[in-house]
């Protein structure tokens, strides 16, 4: 066994300290050490976007980040998306109302990626949504209701 490394990181505003292997991916540490299993792994090669998280605000695939690289960084995952325990983020609510998900395994990554988009661009065109989310694979929905859900959330958020 290699020597384990100590890391401290902030996830959804909560401070965590944990030990990890030097070759351990961030998605594994989130899921297995911090028990935040909302982030899913779909390919481990950065092709599917299921493990999308924010790392100091940047949208990244957490399967391609080593946990030690997250030292001192701020992380945002699906578990931190709903503003309160009884209140959903507009994206979550519209995904639910429009059926923007089926099996749900790609959904946390898509919600995180869509939230990053809407923070950068509050009024994206359909084409902008399509290209922004092109790195998030979904095999169930055929994508259309995902676009409609993001558009509906964007509209609601613009209206405040």
């Amino acid at each position: 066994m290699t020597k384990r490394s100590h890391i401290s990181l902030s996830v959804n505003g909560d401070e965590y300290e944990t030990l990890c292997e030097p070759d351990q991916s961030l998605v594994d540490v989130l899921r297995n050490e911090l028990e935040l299993t909302g982030t899913k792994e779909g390919c481990s090669t950065g092709d599917c976007g299921a493990c999308s998280i924010r790392l100091d605000g940047d949208l990244v695939c957490s399967c391609l980040v080593l946990a030690v690289e997250a030292e001192g960084k701020e992380i945002e995952t699906i578990e931190g998306m709903a503003p309160k325990s009884d209140e959903l983020h507009p994206l979550q609510r519209h995904f639910l109302e429009i059926n923007g998900l089926q099996c749900g395994i790609c959904t946390p990554g898509i919600l995180i990626a869509a939230k990053a988009l809407l923070e950068k661009n509050s009024d994206p065109t359909e084409t902008e949504i399509r290209f922004w989310l092109a790195g998030n694979l979904c095999r169930c929905t055929g994508y259309d209701k995902i676009i409609r859900s993001v558009q509906a959330a964007a509209e609601e958020m613009r209206k405040g």
């Binding site: 935040l36 982030t39 699906i78 998306m81 979550q92 639910l96 998900l101 749900g104 959904t107």
Partner: peptide, 19 residues
């Protein structure tokens, strides 16, 4: 009608095999 399945899934509370 909206789906009964969705509330846990949109919160990241899905319990798949790896979980």
């Amino acid at each position: 009608l909206t789906r009964l399945e969705d509330p846990p899934l949109i919160l990241g509370q899905g319990n798949y095999a790896a979980d």
